[in-house]
Design a protein around this nucleic acid. Sequence first.
DNA 1: GTGAAAGCGCTAACAC
DNA 2: GTGTTAGCGCTTTCAC
Lengths: 363, 363
Amino acid sequence: MTPPPAAPHTGAGRPDARVRMVDVAQRAGVGTITVSRVLRTPERVSPEVRRRVLAAIQATGYVPNLAAGTLKSQRSRVVASIVPTLRNTIFAETVDGLADGLRAQGLQLLIASSGYSVEAEEEILLNLLGQQPVAVVLTGTAHAPPVRALLRSRALPVVETWDLSDDPIDLAVGFSNFEAARSMTLALATRGYRRIAFAGAPPQREHRAAQRLEGYRQAMAELGRSAHTVTLDDLGVTFASGESAVRGLLAGPLAPDVVFFANDVAAFGAAQACVRLGVAVPTRMAIAGFGDFELAGASNPPLTTVRIPGEHIGRTAARLIIERLAASRGAGEAQAAGAAGTAQAVSGRSVDLGFEIVFRESA
Amino acid sequence: MTPPPAAPHTGAGRPDARVRMVDVAQRAGVGTITVSRVLRTPERVSPEVRRRVLAAIQATGYVPNLAAGTLKSQRSRVVASIVPTLRNTIFAETVDGLADGLRAQGLQLLIASSGYSVEAEEEILLNLLGQQPVAVVLTGTAHAPPVRALLRSRALPVVETWDLSDDPIDLAVGFSNFEAARSMTLALATRGYRRIAFAGAPPQREHRAAQRLEGYRQAMAELGRSAHTVTLDDLGVTFASGESAVRGLLAGPLAPDVVFFANDVAAFGAAQACVRLGVAVPTRMAIAGFGDFELAGASNPPLTTVRIPGEHIGRTAARLIIERLAASRGAGEAQAAGAAGTAQAVSGRSVDLGFEIVFRESA
DNA sequence: GTGAAAGCGCTAACAC
DNA sequence: GTGTTAGCGCTTTCAC
């Protein structure tokens, strides 16, 4: 019954996926470790041998089995990342920046999306951790309690993005969503707007939107005005959510003279709806967004918004990971001896990349 | 709520990520294989034992080392995918659909972006294959020659997306870029447009854009008209590229009465530029796009475009992979005996998901 | 339904 | 600069 398919031979003609390091080694007339070294630390192999080995790799079409390497060395070349969604350009930018920075070091990105769910994040993380990633990148600072515990117990660089934190799991890189929203609100007031409304995703479903809401509230309190908030459909990430919000606002009593959306997508949808409805922007109703997506500057009217360094966040996360990895390789033993405490000692960095209020024509 | 004690456990001492299957097995008073079975085929373990093992897993915070499992079983739970970029929403949609469909089967997505480079794709693929993926998803059908050979030599489901193919590496799911562009061009002619121009990315740099260009050319030939083509900057994926194209066209002699962009992003940029320049759309110059990105319907004027089933492509790719995986597991022995030839036998499927011409106000 | 032993393919540690 | 040996943590096979 059991067929003997595992052809026990060397480069016998046909290109086979089952070429192992031994096969390459035999063909090149060296030991397997030399093949391994040619792949990982070529400078430690003499040019002549290196040439022969590379030729053998070419000839056999050898592809190293990373599962074996990872198992033995206890170190993969994979970084795991969880994002709420890839459909939102702004997260895609961060992921792109991250992947770019990582690739330079030969690190692969393993991506999963949580659909904005904290519970899904936890489950996904367990899956991801099984792949033995060398580092983990999360979006936001709001996680299920086991997530913190799980990650802290491992001596593993963890970067939380898109937000700051007083107490990051390990590292954080982002900006203050609270301050950004507060600044925009105050800036709108300075521009002369009287009734400033805020429209964002349900705070309990989207932590970052919740912080923006708080920033807005704080600013309104400072201004001595009363807050006027609207909750967006669809987590505020659709154009339709913006349109529906603006329709509601226009229909109600005391329509605001400016609406600050926690998301450019919704803001754009709102602005385009106004144009269609014949509502002058910004004179009858002004609109501000958040994110500075590419379309913000290209649309009519161009959107006033908060510019966020999306790609920079990704690149910075990559840099932090690489630094941390280099450090722990150097410190190696010392760190292992220090056990749990050590990770803590090097922890606690939160990098603030800031934001920028960009006034265009919509407000 | 989850039981709070994340750290407390056996006499092992410190909270450590190094919990192995043996540790769990000992704690539950079973052999390691039973733990493995609880994780992989729980129905083959008695409820009582299963309960004990699950409790031990909880208590220890055990996370299986997938590298070991993959090495031994020669089968990972990872699907590798290469996309040109994640910044373009349309690819992100496909990836999202793919990830969703895969997750349902407990498969993880390993993503890399090639930056539209065929050479990069090859290098990345080698890296990805080392992770022992169970399947590979590529974008497009234009690949470096070694890529075909490499993938064909492995008994591995391969799905090429976003295009059709007479001779796919294995499976293909998409639509005819050629036919889509041809249809739109003919439809524009039917609508009464006389001078129909086409604007796309440099054909040698973007295969799909090249096919759209050919579809346009074919249609123009059928109509007995002469083609008028413009090459976009930045692979046509920026708003600015659309603006610059439209400016060039307006400045030149014999400005077209409609421009068909191979990409909605450029089309949107062009339309907004027209609005800003006071060029009436569609009366003085009409604009058509390709892709039906979310913003196409929400902008002013709403964009006439070709609707592409982006997410559907991803979901279908996932389904094809899952079917193929199930089949090869069932056929297991037979297929192994058949060796290289077998993969070929089940190959060659190209699924056409079609497209749709959507007329809105811009043309 | 459960277990014991063997070994997947690589690399760390130590020889030479 | 290069080779030998051992073993990473699982799952496969075959017993029971």
